[in-house]
Design a protein around this nucleic acid. Sequence first.
DNA 1: ATACTTAATGGACAATCGTCCATTAGTGGG
DNA 2: CCCACTAATGGACGATTGTCCATTAAGTAT
Lengths: 227, 227
Amino acid sequence: MSDFSLTDTTQRRTARRDPEASRQALIDATLDTIAESGLAEASVTNIIRRAELSRGMVHLHFGGKDNLVTAAAQQFSNHYYSEMDRMIDIGNAPPAVRVMAVVVADLSETLLNPRSTKIWHAFRGAANAHPGIAKYSSTQDERLVQNVRFAFEEIAREQGGSDTLAEDATYGTLALLEGMWVHYLTDMENFSRPWAIELVRRFLAGLFPNHFSDPATSAESMHRLIL
Amino acid sequence: MSDFSLTDTTQRRTARRDPEASRQALIDATLDTIAESGLAEASVTNIIRRAELSRGMVHLHFGGKDNLVTAAAQQFSNHYYSEMDRMIDIGNAPPAVRVMAVVVADLSETLLNPRSTKIWHAFRGAANAHPGIAKYSSTQDERLVQNVRFAFEEIAREQGGSDTLAEDATYGTLALLEGMWVHYLTDMENFSRPWAIELVRRFLAGLFPNHFSDPATSAESMHRLIL
DNA sequence: ATACTTAATGGACAATCGTCCATTAGTGGG
DNA sequence: CCCACTAATGGACGATTGTCCATTAAGTAT
C-alpha cells in the first residue's frame, strides 16, 4: 500500500525478466504437454505457446530442446523422490510399518495420479533411445531400495528368514508397485488405492505373517499415520 | 532344376510384386526401428529405407503412417498372445502348475527379450496420446486374465480361501510380472529368469502354501514342462 | 501379342520441425 | 540520466516430416 511503485516493479520483474521463472515455466509447460498430449506433441512450438514465452527461450535457457526435456525428466524424478521422502519420514516405526509407508506413499494421490503416470510412462518409453531421459526414468533409486531392503532384512532376521528372502521381498514389493502403476494407467476409473494397498499387504503377509498381519499395517491405519 | 524358368518366375514374384510380403516388410521394419531407435525415429523415411521399399508403399498399403504403426502394434500384441497360448497349452495340469506356466512363459526368452521389452514400453508410453496403439498395449487380455483367475479360484476353493483372495492373487501375479518386465528393461544384464520365477513362486507360496511349495511348481520343473 | 489391372516407384508438396541470431526492451550501476 | 548488461523477442533458415499422385512396370486375362 505504502510503496506501490516498488510492489509494481517487483510484480513486473517477476512477470517479465525473471530467468529462473522462465526456465521453470518452460519445464512446467513441457511436463504439462507430455501429460496431456504425449511426448510426440511436445514440440518447441507447443511448449512455448503453453508457457506464453517466445521461441528463442528454449535455446537461451537450455541450449536446445533435448536439454529442456532432460531437465523436465530430472525435475519430475526429483519431485517424486522428495515427496516420497517427505511422506515416509515417520521416525523409527517398526520395519513392517516402514515398508508399508513406502507402499502407501507410492500409491497415494500425491505420487500416483493421472498426470504423473502419463508422464512417467511417456518418459520410460522414450528412455531407451534418449540417454538423457534414461538417467531419470528409473524407480530403482538407490536410497529408496536400500531403505526398503534394510526394513526387510530386519524383519527377516526377527523371523529367522534368509537374506535372499529379504532381497526377494524388496524387489518383489517394488515390482508389485510398478505393476500397480501400470494397472492404474490402463484402468484409472476402476482403480482403488485401498484395494491396491491391501493387495500388497496381503502378499507381504504371506511372506512375513507375523509382521504384515499387524493391524498397524492396514490401509486405514497407514493412511492415518502418513496423512 | 527341370523347370528353371518357373522357379525363376516364382522367385521374382516373391521378391517384387507381392503385396502381402510388402505389407509385412513394412510392419517388420517399423518394429525393428522402434526396438533399435525408439518410436520417435520410426519415420516413414527410416522405415522404408530399412524395408528397402519405396516411399509410396506406406500410403498404398496402410493409407498413412498412423495405420502402419497401429498395425505393427496389433501384430506385436498378437504375437505375444499366440506364443503365450502355445506355451501354456499343457493339458489339465494342477491349477498351481497352470499359473506357474503363465509366469514362466511370460518371463521366457521367447516373450521377454530386449527387442520385445523395448517395443512394449515404447508403445505403452505413446498409448495415451495414440488411441490406435492403446488398443493393443494392454497386458490385460481378457482371456489370459480369466485363465489365471480360474486357476486361482480353484486353488482358493481347495484351501478354503475367499473369492477376493483369488482375485487379489490374479491381479497381484500380473502386477508382479509387469514389474519384472520393467526390472528387465532397466537392468538386462543382471536379470535372471530363474530368480524372477522363484520370486513370483515365493510370493504365491505365501498366499497358498499348500500349492506353490510343490516342487512341481519350481522354476526347473516348470522349465522342463514347457520347453 | 495386346489390353487390362494393379503393385510399386520416387519426386513434388505444404507443413512442421529445432536451431539460431539480429533486434528490442527491461534492469541495475555509475 | 545514461550506459552496460542481458533477458526476451520473433522471424529466417535449412532440414525433415507425412501425404499424395503421375508414372512405370509386372502379372493376368483375352
